[in-house]
């Protein structure tokens, strides 16, 4: 059975002014295997972000269901879903959304703050992931003391610290220049090479093509997926 199963998921938002329902996703179904790297492309307003937040256990679908590791995610209570996010998911946001008042190691340890775990263990895990993304030496720096690429890597480290089975990335290179964007994609590829399941929303066809599979979405409906096994691996030498 696939690790992630999206079953006939629809989402309709209610227009605040008219009160009329606006369908954003229409009976979307797909599956993601464990260890797979899937990217999602589509024009603005096509429903990419909505699908991502539904996959992220944050946005209750109007219809259909989402199974991750066999768990019917939206059958869980709100608080249990928060626990599920903490255990199963790692988020990488487009703008990184690092806490500016916490240093690098504190930002990385943020998802561990709610867990009953010894402080030393939290720190050890934080340093481990910082090591993985090549930022161990900058653990004490505040986000604004890091470059754009380093901030991106720090955001990835935060997404990995709780060792989640699934990493969700929302246009992680959207605001970065090509060189920094490549640096981030290199990290993703390397993580995937180690077995990490990744779902990435992107506008960038080149980055999308680095995934095993590219999903295309238009007007809330998934179109045929592209098998993009022909990764342009030559662009990326292993980063980590």
């Amino acid at each position: 059975m696939a690790f992630v199963v999206v079953e006939n998921v629809s989402k309709t938002y209610s227009d605040q002014e008219s009160g009329i329902g606006v369908p954003v996703l229409r009976a979307v179904s797909t599956e993601i295997a464990e260890g797979e790297f899937v990217s999602l492309m589509g024009p603005s307003g096509s429903g990419k972000s909505t699908l991502l937040t539904i996959l992220g256990a944050m946005n209750h679908p109007s219809q259909g269901r989402l199974l991750i590791d066999g768990i019917d995610v939206y059958a869980l209570s709100d608080e249990r879903r928060a626990d599920f996010r903490s255990q199963y998911l790692g988020f990488v946001f487009q703008q990184h959304h690092l806490m500016p008042y916490l240093n690098a190691i504190e930002n990385v340890m943020l998802p561990l703050a709610t867990l009953s775990m010894a402080s030393l263990e939290k720190r050890r895990r934080g340093l481990d992931v910082l090591e993985k993304v090549g930022l161990a030496e900058k653990a004490k720096r505040l986000p604004n003391q890091l470059s754009g690429g380093e901030q991106g890597r720090l955001a990835i480290a935060r997404a990995l610290v709780n060792d989640p089975p699934l990493v969700l990335a929302d246009e992680p290179t959207g605001t970065l220049d090509t060189k920094t964007g490549d640096e981030i994609m290199r990290v993703f590829l390397d993580l995937n090479a180690r077995g990490q399941t990744i779902f990435m929303v992107t506008h960038n066809p080149e980055n999308a093509s680095l995934a095993h599979r590219v999903l295309h979405i238009r007007d809330g409906e998934l179109e045929l997926a592209t098998d993009s096994r022909a990764r342009t691996a030559s662009r990326f030498s292993p980063a980590i």
Binding site: M58, E79, S86, F91, F93, H97, L110, P111, A113, T114
Partner: peptide, 16 residues
């Protein structure tokens, strides 16, 4: 709002 949204997204409960 942003900060709270991020915290909720990474697994913070309402009570947290």
């Amino acid at each position: 709002t942003k900060e709270i949204g991020v915290l909720r997204a990474i697994g913070f409960r309402k009570t947290h």
